[in-house]
Design a protein around this nucleic acid. Structure first.
Length: 571
RNA sequence: CGGGGCGUAGCGCAGCCUGGUAGCGCACCUGCUUUGGGAGCAGGGUGUCGGAGGUUCAAAUCCUCUCGCCCCGACCA
C-alpha cells in the first residue's frame, strides 16, 4: 500500500488526552481516533492490526472445533429477564426502547442469545458437544472507560460458548479452549501467562485469565518462580502460617501515640516493625460493620472478604461511623474492647505474639497485645493478598508478583444459563438434561493495545511480525528517478510474494519518513537512498534492534522472507 | 458514583490571578533554496476562547448553571 493513498494521520506530538503508552501510540500512529469517551473509529492502520489478530483467532478457534456464527448486537429484554440479568447487570447494560416501546439492550456478552438459539435447535445428545463463537462489537457502558482500546465502552471481542452433554465433556471443551488460547497468544508474538482467576459471582469450577505481561498492566498476578502455579492476586490463596511465634506473653500495656495513624507512623514511633503490628480495618456491608484484623504489612483482599461475609457490597467504613463505633478517629481502631462488632482476622494474625494494636481511643495504642488473652476473634480466614515471598499454595516455590493485562478469559459456566432458560436435550436414556456450558472471551482491541504496551520504545511501536499492520515499511529517501524506480520494483516484488509492504511515497524528508516509520512500528524498514544505490545496495533495517543489513536488491525478497518467517515462529 | 484536573486555531500550549486590540510552536497554503533522522527564508489563511445565563461602559478573564473530556478509586475482554 502507498502512504499517499492511505489515511495514516500521524501526530508529531503526544495528544493531551492520552496517558497510557498504547493509547498514545495508537493515536499518534494514526490507528484510532476517538468519537466519544470509550468509543473509537479504527483507521486503516488500526483495522489492519485488528484483522491480523482476528485472523489468528479464527484459525485457532476453527482448528479447535469451534464454529463461527454472528449474533445481533441488540437483544430483547425478555431474554435477559429470563436469567435475571436484566435486573442484575446494572447500568453497564446499555438499554433502550424501540419505537413500540419495547425494551432492548446492546449486547455486553451473549450467553442469553446463544442459549436461546441452542434451546430451540438442539434436541438430542447427538448434537453435542457444540462450540459456537463470534467476533463482534460489544457494548458495555463502563463506569470509567480509559486507556484507549484497553477499556472502551464499545470494543471488539471474540466470544465463544460451548455446550456439552456432561461435566466431563465440558471440562474437555474448556481444555480445548485453554489450549487454543495458548496457541493464539503465542502466535500473536506476545509474552503472556494463563493464571487462575476468580470465578466471581457466576461461580463455577474453573476459570483462567490470559495475561499479557506488562509493567503497565491493570491486573496483579502472582506466580511461583520456576513452578507452575500462577493466579490473579484476587484469587491467589495464601496458606495459614505453619509456625506460630513462641516468645513468652508479655503484659499488655497502653502507650501514647499522638498523631500516629498509619502503620508506618506507629511502627516508627514505637520502634517496631509492621510485622508486629496488627491493623484493624472496619468494613461496612448492607447488613453490618465488621472489624478485619490484618498484619501491618499485609493488604486486605476485598473479594476474599466479601466471600467470607457472603455479600457483594462492601466498603470501607466512613470516618464518622468509625468514630461512632470505636470512639476514636480513623487510625486508632483495635480489637480490644470493641464490643457489638464482629471481628474476623487473617490467618497470619493468629501466629503473632505481643503485637501492637489500636486502643480505640485517640492517640493511643496497646503494645504486647495477644489474641485469646486480650481479645477474641470470631473467625480466622485467608483475607489478604498474596505478596512476594509467600509460599506457593502448590508448594512449588516462593511467589513473585507481576503486572498483567487481561486479554482472554476462559470460564466454566455449568448449567446456570441453560437451566435458567430451560435449554435441554435428551440424553441416551431419554432424560431431559441441561447442557453444561462454558464461555470464552478474547478482547481483540485490547490484545492489540497489550501488544503495544509490551513492544515499544521511545520512538514508537515495535510490532510483533504476526500482527504488524505491515511487515515492511519501504522508505525511498529521495525523489530521484533512480530511487523511485528501485522502490517501485521492490514494492512489486515483495507484494507479489505476499509480503505486506507500506510504501512511503510521500515527498517528505528522510527524517520525517524515518520517524513516522519508527512510530508506526513495522518490524522491518527497507531503506532506499542514492548513497546505497550508488553502491548497488538497499538497506533492510530491523525496527527492534536498529540493525541495518545492506543488500543487493535481488536479495531482498529472500532475506525478508527468511526474517519474517522466523519472526512468526509458531504460526 | 466519589475525589482531582482540563476545555482558547487541525494538534500541543500561553493568556485568566489583577476585565480593555486573542497569542506562541507545530501543522496547513504559495514561492525560492534545501534533501540519509521531524529543513531555511519570505509571504499567507486559520478562532462561536465548550455552551447558556449573569455582573460590567467593556468578559477568554469575575459569578451561576450546564455539557464534554482526562486522571485516581469500586467493575471487566
Amino acid at each position: 500500500m502507498r502512504t499517499s493513498q492511505v489515511l495514516i494521520p500521524t501526530l508529531r506530538e503526544d495528544p493531551g488526552e492520552a496517558e497510557t503508552v498504547s493509547h498514545r501510540l495508537m493515536l499518534r500512529s494514526g490507528m484510532i481516533r476517538k468519537v466519544a469517551a470509550g468509543i473509537y473509529t479504527y483507521l486503516p492502520l488500526g483495522l489492519r492490526v485488528l484483522r491480523k489478530i482476528e485472523h489468528i483467532v479464527r484459525e485457532e478457534m476453527n482448528r479447535a472445533g469451534a464454529q463461527e456464527l454472528l449474533m445481533p448486537i441488540a437483544s430483547p429484554a425478555e431474554l435477559w429477564q429470563e436469567t435475571g440479568r436484566w435486573g442484575f447487570y446494572g447500568k453497564e447494560l446499555f438499554r433502550f426502547k424501540d419505537r413500540h416501546d419495547r425494551d432492548f439492550c446492546l449486547g455486553p456478552t451473549h450467553e442469553e442469545v446463544i442459549t436461546d438459539l441452542i434451546r430451540r435447535e438442539v434436541r438430542s445428545y447427538r448434537q453435542l458437544p457444540l462450540n459456537c463463537y463470534q467476533i463482534q462489537t460489544k457494548f458495555r457502558d463502563e463506569i470509567r472507560p480509559r486507556f484507549g482500546l484497553m477499556r472502551g465502552r464499545e470494543f471488539i471481542m471474540k466470544d465463544a460458548y460451548s455446550f456439552d452433554r456432561d461435566e466431563e465433556g465440558a471440562r474437555l471443551s474448556y481444555q480445548k479452549m485453554y489450549d487454543a488460547y495458548n496457541r493464539i497468544f503465542t502466535r500473536c508474538g506476545l509474552t503472556f501467562r494463563p493464571v487462575e482467576a476468580d470465578t466471581g459471582l457466576i461461580g463455577g469450577t474453573s476459570s483462567h485469565e490470559f495475561m499479557v505481561l506488562a509493567e503497565t498492566g491493570e491486573e496483579t498476578i502472582v506466580y511461583a518462580q520456576g513452578g507452575t502455579y500462577a493466579a490473579n492476586v484476587e484469587r491467589a490463596e495464601v496458606r495459614p502460617p505453619t509456625e506460630s511465634a513462641s516468645e513468652p506473653l508479655r503484659p499488655l500495656r497502653k502507650v501514647p501515640t499522638p498523631g500516629a495513624r498509619t502503620v508506618e507512623e506507629v511502627t516508627t514511633l514505637l520502634q517496631t516493625t509492621p510485622q508486629r503490628l496488627v491493623k484493624t480495618l472496619l468494613y461496612t456491608t448492607p447488613q453490618e460493620t465488621v472489624a478485619v484484623l490484618l498484619r501491618g504489612d499485609h493488604q486486605v483482599n476485598g473479594i476474599k472478604l466479601a466471600k467470607l461475609l457472603g455479600v457483594t457490597d462492601l466498603e470501607l467504613t466512613p470516618p464518622e461511623k468509625v468514630m461512632a463505633i470505636t470512639h476514636a478517629p480513623v487510625g486508632f481502631a483495635g480489637p480490644i474492647g470493641l464490643s457489638h462488632t464482629r471481628i474476623v482476622a487473617d490467618h497470619a494474625v493468629k501466629a503473632l505474639r505481643n503485637i501492637v494494636v489500636g486502643a480505640n481511643e485517640g492517640d493511643a495504642h496497646y503494645v504486647d497485645a495477644n489474641w485469646e488473652r486480650d481479645f477474641s476473634v470470631e473467625q480466622f480466614a485467608d483475607l489478604r493478598n498474596a505478596q512476594t515471598g509467600d509460599p506457593s499454595p502448590r508448594g512449588d516455590g516462593p511467589l513473585l508478583i507481576a503486572r498483567g493485562i487481561e486479554v482472554g478469559h476462559v470460564f466454566m459456566l455449568g448449567t446456570k444459563y441453560s437451566q435458567a432458560m430451560g435449554a435441554t436435550f435428551l440424553d441416551p436414556q431419554g432424560r431431559e438434561c441441561p447442557p453444561v456450558m462454558g464461555c470464552y472471551g478474547i478482547g481483540i482491541g485490547r490484545t492489540a493495545a497489550a501488544a503495544i504496551e509490551q513492544n515499544h520504545d521511545a520512538k514508537g511501536i515495535i510490532w510483533p511480525v504476526p500482527i504488524a499492520p505491515f511487515a515492511i515499511h519501504l522508505l525511498p529517501l529521495h525523489q530521484s528517478a533512480r530511487v523511485t524506480e528501485a522502490a517501485r520494483s521492490l514494492y512489486h516484488i515483495l507484494t507479489d510474494a505476499g509480503v505486506d509492504v507500506l510504501w512511503d511515497d510521500r515527498d517528505e524528508r528522510a527524517g520525517v519518513k524515518f520517524n513516522d516509520a519508527d512510530l508506526i512500528g513495522a518490524p522491518y524498514q527497507l531503506v532506499i537512498g542514492e548513497k546505497g544505490l550508488a553502491q548497488g545496495t538497499v538497506e533492510l533495517k530491523e525496527r527492534k534492534t536498529g540493525t541495518v543489513k545492506p543488500l543487493a536488491p535481488g536479495e531482498v525478497l529472500q532475506q525478508a522472507k527468511q526474517r519474517l518467517d522466523s519472526g512468526s515462529a509458531g504460526a
